[in-house]
Design a protein around this nucleic acid. Structure first.
Length: 203
DNA sequence: CTCTCGATGCGCT
DNA sequence: GCGCATCGAGAGA
């Protein structure tokens, strides 16, 4: 599928230079794009999670800087990709200014571009399970540690583009999924009623 | 539908 | 060793 990307539509570095909850909310409705072997794939972001720089025990940087979490200390707008449970890649966008470790996890997208290619990389799964979870998003888009630290505001193969305006009344905020520490923080954002969200309302 | 559990690698105590 | 920002298969209701 041919994809035209207007540089004007690509989210600027400034977009990411804000609090992670602000960015998590703002990313809903935006278009995540990935080019693999010259072929574009991607879709609309429908679920995100914020990881805060202060007072957030669930953040990988809660106990200071390490080799793994170093990208979060870098400038905003870069990717932070890491391996979870030994087999799933997680894709985050770094937020806030350099030196402040925060990020937004992309948890689900609504596939629009290159769906056949994504399905192939997802082992031909049923359509509804293509990208409704953070590990599934990375598998469908073939995002691995090779994409760690790439600048999303200036990269040929991985970027995020402005999408159609989203009705803010549809945005929901709940506790984050799958964490033990920091469970009291409501940092998960998703689009109400969207069938591609990983799971329904979680108090 | 819900629940349980194994897979699997690595960062940290 | 332990514990993960997960997923998918299989069992049971």
């Amino acid at each position: 599928m041919k994809v035209m990307i207007d540089a004007h539509d690509i989210l600027s570095q400034d977009f990411y230079a804000r609090q992670p909850d602000t960015v998590a909310r703002a990313l809903l409705g935006m278009i995540l794009l990935r080019c693999v072997e010259g072929e574009w794939r991607g879709g609309r972001i429908v679920e995100t999670e914020a990881y805060f720089s202060e007072g957030d025990a669930a953040n990988h940087a809660a106990n200071g800087r390490t080799k793994r979490n170093a990208p979060m200390y870098g400038p905003p707008g870069h990717a932070y990709v890491y391996l979870c449970y030994g087999m799933h890649w997680m894709f985050n966008t770094v937020t806030e200014e350099e030196g402040t470790p925060s990020a937004v996890l992309i948890r689900a997208i609504e596939p629009h571009i290159g769906t056949a290619a994504m399905r192939r990389d997802r082992n031909g799964c049923v359509e509804g399970e293509l990208s409704n979870g953070p590990g599934k998003v990375c598998a469908a888009l073939r995002i691995t540690n090779e994409q760690n630290c790439v600048p999303l505001f200036d990269n040929e193969n991985l970027t995020i583009m402005r999408g159609d305006a989203l009705d803010s009344a549809l945005i929901r905020c709940t506790p984050r999924i799958g964490i033990r520490k920091g469970e009291e923080i409501r940092g998960r954002y998703y689009i109400e009623g969207n069938p591609w969200v990983s799971r329904g309302p979680v108090t």
